[in-house]
Nucleic acid binder design. Structure first.
Lengths: 340, 340
DNA sequence: CTGTTAGCGCCTTCAT
DNA sequence: ATGAAGGCGCTAACAG
């Protein structure tokens, strides 16, 4: 009965310790059900042999992978990297591993990426979609009864961890107005590219209406390319030129500032710029970027907590959405205008 | 023989299609060994039933998880996020999933994190360590015969994908000297914090020696905190003050620029600043950061390719290290001095 | 080209 | 408190 070249497994530890495999298993999963004496012996042997439970076998047996899939647009935008950091840390703390995939803001890739995640038998998904509206993926997940949480996205029917994009931008408009600005424009990537962009633009419109200001036409630039022609045009008319520019995200804001300065104008003296996201570097640069700071890491944290709750509770209806509040970073890219 | 509530599995598809489980398995793994007719029938049935092969079972059976573990300091520094993007994309293309964990620049966490990765039965590891010198982890992995690749780190004995940090910094020194700078200082986070920091500092010393310049004392600031006292002191003496400052990484460079400007000095008029890393945002800001651009994404890509080669080849000696070359980004934070 | 069979390593009732 | 036994879903011989 003496095993020969037994590969590393629970069985080997069992034999070496002189107990049954069941006992070894218990030591790792229900330690309280094993007498301290044998438990220590098993632990010691396991230690000595460098034994680690086989995750695949355990997953197969328990039907639990302890894996969370994460779908995000790209890690090249720090806002998502910051979020992922929050996701990673929290998942770890909750006993889950994460498997991230970037979709490149592409709906087709979003679908294929999630399929791969499903193939890995993830227990749940955290997704940052370009736009959750009528997304085939959602139906699919619902049918599979696979728990998921949307991050940054907003949708009335599904569990989302996000911010009130529209409200935040409207507040920025009010703030700028309060500082004497009336010609306030908004610049964005392609609106169709994300629900955030749309919500933020709506916030702009609402804010302008609230303040009794005339909304300007949206300055829409291709986000992926570096083409700033639309901005150039908006700046060309030095009389009608806006005094303040709200950008749909921080990366765009930086790009705008650069373009404006290259044009020979000054930020914030000639034109104020406000971003959205609150990426860390924005606070390191000079002039410090004035921006709406989303709690990106916290969004990641909450998304995991919410997802884990769903997974544990098996309760799919408990998917309480969370709208986190933003703060405004008083940077140095906004100028208070003299009253005329 | 008519199966009842058979849970989703290869067996179910087999029964429904009227073939054996082996055939279904072949359809997914060795399609060429199955007649087109039955293959199509199986595929159709699988499709209809929404069947997906169970990854855990497959892993258990084949002893291959198709998972790569990734250990990195943090995602909050864009340089690592960019690298991870490269890792993620390439791993996907190679048929692997990735599982990233952040270590927070902490050796103890590095160890515990990798343990967790091992517990997930990853087939290999990509690691960005603070310092691979005499790292207990390495011994452990070697003993386990688990393939791994170090990224950014440099070590003669193990497979690394990195850049020649020392050479690149030395080149910066030469470049600055060529532009008329002689009082060139270097600023870094704690040297002990990473082998990169050390190598870059060595490069500074070597570069200064090469140019026949007198190396200044290293300005060492705590990287994690925002404490810039050491810099303040270096700038206090307006006569001896350096005309150029080489920073050990881009994040530090941004912080320095901010501090310098807040002191009332100008970059680059009063003092030139050069970074190291080449994070994307550095090119978006104004003034554009002059810096040594590491091919971060490519480091990630190469690391995966190198790792996969090891995994496939089972050949642990084929671990050819790769030293990628950097480029210099001519930004706007360096001034060419007039000849005296 | 297809079917049969035997585990991969683990957990978990059910006995003892 | 511990042991025995079955099976999670799949693949890789080996037959036919």
């Amino acid at each position: 009965v003496i095993g020969g070249e037994l590969s590393m497994s629970i069985l080997r530890i069992a034999q070496l310790t002189g107990v049954s495999p069941a006992t070894v298993s218990r030591v790792f999963n229900q330690p309280e059900k094993v007498s301290e004496a044998t438990r220590l012996r098993v632990l010691e042997q396991a230690q000595k042999q460098g034994y680690r439970p086989n995750a695949a076998a355990r997953t197969l047996r328990t039907q639990r992978s302890h894996m969370i899939g994460v779908l995000l647009p790209t890690l090249l935008n720090p806002v998502f990297a910051e979020c992922l950091e929050g996701v990673a840390d929290t998942a770890l703390a909750e006993g889950y591993g994460i498997m991230p995939i970037a979709s490149g803001y592409d709906r087709v890739q979003e679908i294929s990426s999630v399929r791969r995640l499903l193939a890995q038998n993830v227990e749940g998904l955290i997704m940052i979609l370009t736009d959750p509206q009528e997304h085939p993926l959602i139906e699919e997940l619902l049918a599979l009864k696979l728990p998921f949480v949307l991050a940054y996205n907003q949708h009335p029917d599904y569990c989302c961890v996000s911010v009130d994009n529209a409200r935040e931008v409207a507040a920025v408009v009010a703030r700028l107005h309060h500082q004497g600005h009336t010609r306030i424009s908004m610049l964005s990537g392609q609106l169709s590219a994300s629900d955030r962009a749309q919500a933020r633009y709506e916030g702009y419109l609402r804010g302008m209406a609230n303040e009794g200001l005339r909304a300007q036409a949206l300055i829409e630039v291709p986000f992926m390319s570096q083409d700033m022609a639309a901005l150039d045009e908006a700046l060309s008319d030095s009389v009608q030129r806006p005094t303040a520019l709200i950008c749909s995200n921080d990366l765009l804001a930086l790009r705008c500032i650069r373009r404006i300065v290259c044009t020979g104008l000054s930020v914030p003296n000639d034109i104020s710029v406000v971003g959205f996201d609150g990426i860390e570097v924005g606070a390191q640069i000079t002039p410090m970027l004035s921006t709406v700071v989303q709690p990106s890491q916290r969004i990641g944290v909450e998304a995991v907590l919410c997802l884990v709750k769903q997974i544990k509770g098996e309760d799919f209806s408990d998917s309480t959405s969370r709208v986190l509040s933003c703060s405004f970073r008083e940077g140095e890219t906004v100028r208070t205008l003299q009253k005329p």
